[in-house]
């Protein structure tokens, strides 16, 4: 319910685009911002059309619930040097990433 309401009342104005850019870690130029306001506005309109139909009976609550779960068994983890290769930067022990000043995280 909360999601449908959010869609219905969401206006794609300049502030919405700038907020979305911030969340996506994008820096937009003035031209790009204008373009996005128009294009995302059209997209939102199309998505807004979904409200026409009654979808209150669909969604995961209505779907047959499936309780596929696994047993609590430990299996060997990946070899460390192999898993570390998936990252562009790593030492012999750690993945590396640029540090941030906002010591947030750890939610």
């Amino acid at each position: 319910m909360r999601r449908q309401k959010a869609l219905k009342y969401m206006k794609t104005d300049r502030n919405t685009v700038l907020r979305a850019a911030e969340l996506s870690k994008l820096i937009l130029t003035e031209d790009e911002t204008e373009k996005m306001v128009t294009e995302l506005g059209k997209l939102a309109e199309i998505i807004g059309n979904l409200d026409i139909g009654d979808i209150s009976e669909t969604g995961s609550e209505a779907a047959q619930p499936v309780s596929e779960a696994r047993e609590d068994e430990v299996k060997p983890s990946a070899e460390r040097d192999k898993i570390l290769q998936n990252a562009p930067e790593h030492t012999e022990e750690y993945f590396c990433a640029p540090d941030t000043f906002d010591k947030g995280g750890d939610e």
Binding site: E73, V74, K75, S77, R80, I83, E93, Y94
Partner: peptide
Amino acid sequence: SCTTEFGGEPNSHCC
């Protein structure tokens, strides 16, 4: 299925 054990060598309980 990685172990939840506390400690361990860094990144040795990963998949």
